[in-house]
Write a protein that binds this DNA or RNA. Structure first.
Lengths: 247, 247
DNA sequence: CAGTGGTCTAGACCACTGC
DNA sequence: CAGTGGTCTAGACCACTGT
């Protein structure tokens, strides 16, 4: 339980003021993890606002994980405190262009094959699925900035079998040709093996940042890709503000 | 410009159906980047719904970067296609506990000092700021899983000067004692130097994943921390679905 | 200056869920 | 079964911004 002395600062939309006021109570630990915060109806009465407005503030807090909402029970300050950070993975072409550098693309190998071994063990493609395996790299002003190792399912994307990928990066090509509906990412650090080191122009053993992405369309895996960046490549993840809607 | 044959599938809340229907138009490239999508008023009329419902769907699409909204002009399919991935950085204690392992913490060094050199060059702390420098590590079932190198501003958090951090990890301690209002993250890969390798129990030169976090309270930097994970530590970033509200 | 999205209201019904 | 949040409506006013 809690007191209801919420301070609205008068800046910006009402729902943001409410959001900020509640977020402040939480970050200042006046409302502590596990505490129930006032019901929507109580907040409406206390702040003399409509329920939709209060609801918008609370939903936003719930989206960001600051509170947990349960019907009939109420809303509670989240016990699992974690930090959210919105990671935006831009198309590499856009990223390079955004730095004012000249983008270029090089296909290294393109192989038709059947999924076997690691690809099936990881549960990515069913055994025997026809896939195209593409290895390529992306450069900024002639310097390698991204090595891409990609598998495309020919079952999900038959036309990929006819695409040489010699001039068009597979990422862009897929965006143009395949509607994906879902993506999952993982991130890790890897040491450059001799091949990778050569492609990225780093020393063997150098630390590199790898993003794995698996993309689905309608419950079928469309593509699986490893994007490997030189380690010094710093990816800015972005800011999060519990008080003001994140960005 | 666009046709208006939106197909609502009848599953779930109306605003999600609308969101899904529009997202599908975009991912299927029937509405292409730069295209104007129907006005709220048009969607209301076509779908026989209230504006608030349509608005909720469109705002959600705008939040996720699929569309851009401009007053007086309308809403447009985003031209900058990028992939959003929600990165959740849990408290390491929670993460270890979540894996069913025994969490432990070890302070390595704790030093009071003044900000100089790299810390001021990077614009993190003003030159001469009193800071506490803490190096510590976190273990799961006795195995190191995270090395932490942290600076805490005594200007922003004077009581940190009296805290030994021998039993309490500084991250948890700060969460308990300081209301932060903003955080910024960057991520990169680093090679383990001999010291780091020893602390993490990896070989010298091994690739490690590093998250840099800078935390503010009221425009003042509270803490700057490097969190370094062994490279094999894969961080799952999460799923994003343009059709269904991400999670 | 006209039209769009941004916000807000005062109702309403309902699903879920804790008691 | 009672009470909470989830959703929806049919209005309204206003800020901003293209034209």
């Amino acid at each position: 339980m809690t007191d209801l002395a919420l301070h609205l600062d008068g800046n910006g939309p009402l729902y943001e003021q409410i959001r900020r006021a509640i977020a402040l109570k939480i970050t200042r630990r006046q409302w502590r993890p596990g505490d129930r915060i006032p019901f929507e109806s109580e907040l409406c009465a206390a702040l003399n606002t409509s329920r939709m407005t209060v609801n918008k503030a609370l939903q936003s807090l719930a989206d960001d994980g600051l509170i947990v909402r349960r019907r009939k029970a109420g809303s509670f300050v989240a016990t699992q405190q974690s930090v959210q950070a919105p990671l935006t993975i831009a198309k590499i072409e856009d990223e390079v262009a955004g730095e004012g550098k000249a983008y270029s693309y090089e296909l290294i190998t393109r192989t038709a094959m059947r999924a076997e071994g690691k690809l099936t063990v990881a549960g990515i493609f069913p055994r025997g699925t026809d896939v195209v395996h593409i290895r390529c790299r992306h450069l900024a002003d002639g310097t390698p900035v991204l090595f891409e190792d990609r598998y495309i399912s020919l079952k999900a994307v038959p036309v990929a079998g006819d695409e040489p990928f010699e001039a068009t990066p597979p990422g862009s090509w897929l965006l143009e040709h395949v509607p994906w509906t879902e993506a999952e990412h993982a991130i890790c650090a890897v040491s450059a093996d001799p091949d990778l080191a050569g492609q990225l122009g780093v020393t063997v053993g150098a630390a590199c940042l790898r993003i794995e992405r698996r993309t689905w369309a309608d419950d079928e895996t469309v593509t699986f890709v490893n994007l490997t960046y030189p380690g010094h490549h710093r990816t800015l993840i972005g800011r999060f503000q519990p008080g003001q809607r994140g960005g």
